[in-house]
């Protein structure tokens, strides 16, 4: 873009806590990324905790057009990939007087890491 403008578009992402994932907040106009950076928190996160902020120039985002969104379609026949396809094991293990190792059980093994 050759034209000089004060109004460049930036997308703002932030995390609530050091361990949470980045979340998209909104977009803002600023002349450059340092300016976008000093405006981001007060524009979109005035009332919530913030642990980190990302500023991304919209021009650097590769987004999808309507045609490309068609590539996201998927049949609902992939139970083999998910635990849904293995639910019958619960009954089987009961037969052997064992508990099923389901998601809740397995993820609890790491202790209370939040």
């Amino acid at each position: 873009m050759a034209e000089k403008t004060f109004y460049r578009e930036f997308e703002v992402f932030s995390k609530r806590t050091p361990s949470s994932a980045f979340q998209h907040q909104f977009s803002l106009l600023a002349p450059n990324k340092d300016m976008a950076f000093i405006m981001a928190q007060e524009n979109f996160m005035r009332r919530e905790p913030v642990a980190d902020i990302w500023i991304i120039d919209r021009e650097h985002i590769r987004s999808m057009n309507a045609d490309e969104k068609l590539t996201l379609g998927r049949l609902d026949n992939k139970q083999y990939r998910t635990t849904k396809g293995y639910g019958y094991l619960k009954k089987k293990w009961r037969h052997y007087e064992q508990q099923m190792l389901d998601e809740k059980e397995i993820l609890s093994w790491g202790g209370n890491s939040k």
Partner: peptide, 8 residues
């Protein structure tokens, strides 16, 4: 106008 001139 002043900051329209900057790019970074």
């Amino acid at each position: 106008d002043a900051l329209a001139a900057t790019t970074n």
